[in-house]
Simulated scan of single mutants.
Amino acid sequence: MRPALFGLFAVLTLGAAAPLPRDGGTPGNPQFEGADPHAMMIDGEMWVFPTGGPKDQTGTATGSWDADRFGAWSSRDLRHWTARGELIRRDQIKWIGDDGAREHFLWAPGVATRNGKYYLYYSVGPQNPTPSRIGVAVADRPQGPYRDSGKPLVTGGNGFEAIDPMVFVDPKTGVAYLYAGGSAGAKLRVWQMADDMMSVVREMPVATPKNFTEGAFVNYRAGTYYLSYSHGRFNGPDYSVHYATSSSPLGPWRYRGAILTSDAKHQGPGHHSIVPTPDGRTLIVYHRWEQRPGPAPFKGERVVAIDRLSYGKNGTILPVRMTDGAEAPTLAAR
């Protein structure tokens, strides 16, 4: 998400920019209202951690949401969703007001797990008048409650916006890396994480790939590291997902093209996660605007959608076709 435009975004969309599943199950895509979904499989369920959280302390889907907390949803079939309640609130992050800014918002969470713990990485903005920051909190369960580390993990500045954190644990080495940054500065930075997953060891040099704007996501498959990311203006028709590949989690990156772009019925797909499922398939979880082509800025609400992601014989990612209704994939019962 573009924090430089957050004031406009908050007025237009934030009140509904978190999920509101349909009671009794969904017919498929769109799954629910939401933005910036980080998704992962946990014990046979798809968990989605979006921007925003429930006003209702029980996690009930009331339709009232805010960017002062995070929530989560999970599903075993991608048709029925369980509210997982409140993960952490802004007032539980004691350092958040240390910069003296009048307003602060939480967005774009990323979750990683290691050694039986769950780690929630999140953006604190807006970028102006003080730089955005990234924080981290830990919990014993994916639904929390999460306990904040007590200090920022990364602080922006000098043209870098500390937003959209994603932590990738390299399956070949066990080293964890934090990927972050984007929007107005459109700069990607990477840090090696300490073993505690709540502090950084050092920054790792990495080049920003072609067409990078924000929302970095890294996955590994068959000896190749895939760095995918959002390109364009978050509330415009050019918002899309592109990717690059490397033999290393730090590049150098070879740009491979776009994999998710606007079509005749859906606009601005992006800020995604790529999720392998237990049955051997791969899914992409992302947000989009349900409308036909038109000029920016879009108004209304973004929604979370889930579609199939496929690889070509040479390891390339094939363009994703966005679906509606029951065309959307499901998870097999286990």
Rank of each mutant, 00 (worst) to 15 (best):
A4C: 00
A4L: 02
L5T: 12
L8I: 03
L14D: 15
A17S: 15
P19F: 11
P21K: 07
T26E: 14
E33S: 11
E33L: 11
A35N: 12
A35Q: 05
A39I: 01
M41W: 07
E45A: 15
V48Q: 02
T51E: 13
G53F: 08
P54Y: 14
G59L: 04
T60I: 00
T62S: 14
G63V: 11
W65K: 01
G71H: 06
W73M: 05
W73P: 03
S74C: 14
R79S: 09
W81I: 05
T82I: 06
A83M: 01
R89S: 14
D91L: 04
D91H: 15
D91I: 02
I93W: 02
K94C: 03
W95R: 00
G97M: 13
D99C: 00
G100N: 09
G100M: 06
A101L: 01
F105C: 00
W107S: 01
V111T: 08
V111G: 12
A112S: 15
T113Y: 03
R114Y: 06
G116H: 06
Y119D: 11
L120S: 12
V124N: 00
V124C: 00
T130Q: 13
R133T: 00
G135C: 03
A137R: 13
A139Q: 11
R141G: 00
G144A: 08
P145K: 03
P145S: 04
Y146P: 10
Y146M: 07
Y146D: 12
R147C: 02
R147A: 11
S149T: 13
S149I: 09
P152N: 05
T155M: 01
G159D: 09
P165S: 09
P165M: 04
P165W: 06
V169W: 05
D170A: 08
G174Q: 08
G174H: 07
A176Y: 08
Y179N: 10
A180Q: 04
G181F: 05
S183G: 01
G185D: 03
K187M: 11
L188V: 08
R189C: 02
M193Q: 02
D196F: 05
M197S: 03
V200Q: 06
E203Y: 07
V206E: 14
T208Q: 12
T208G: 06
T208S: 09
P209S: 10
N211F: 13
F212Y: 15
G215R: 02
N219R: 09
A222R: 13
A222Q: 14
Y229F: 15
S230I: 07
S230K: 06
S230R: 06
H231F: 14
F234W: 15
D238Y: 01
Y239I: 03
S240V: 04
V241Y: 08
H242A: 12
H242F: 15
Y243S: 12
Y243P: 12
A244W: 13
S246Y: 13
S247I: 10
S248C: 10
L250M: 15
L250Q: 15
P252K: 05
R256D: 15
L260H: 03
G270I: 02
G270R: 01
H272S: 05
P278R: 04
D279W: 10
G280K: 04
R281M: 04
L283D: 05
I284Y: 05
I284M: 11
Y286A: 06
P295C: 00
R302T: 13
V304I: 15
A305M: 14
L309K: 07
G312N: 04
G312R: 00
G315T: 01
M322I: 09
D324A: 10
G325H: 05
G325R: 05
A328T: 03
P329T: 06
A332W: 10
A333H: 14
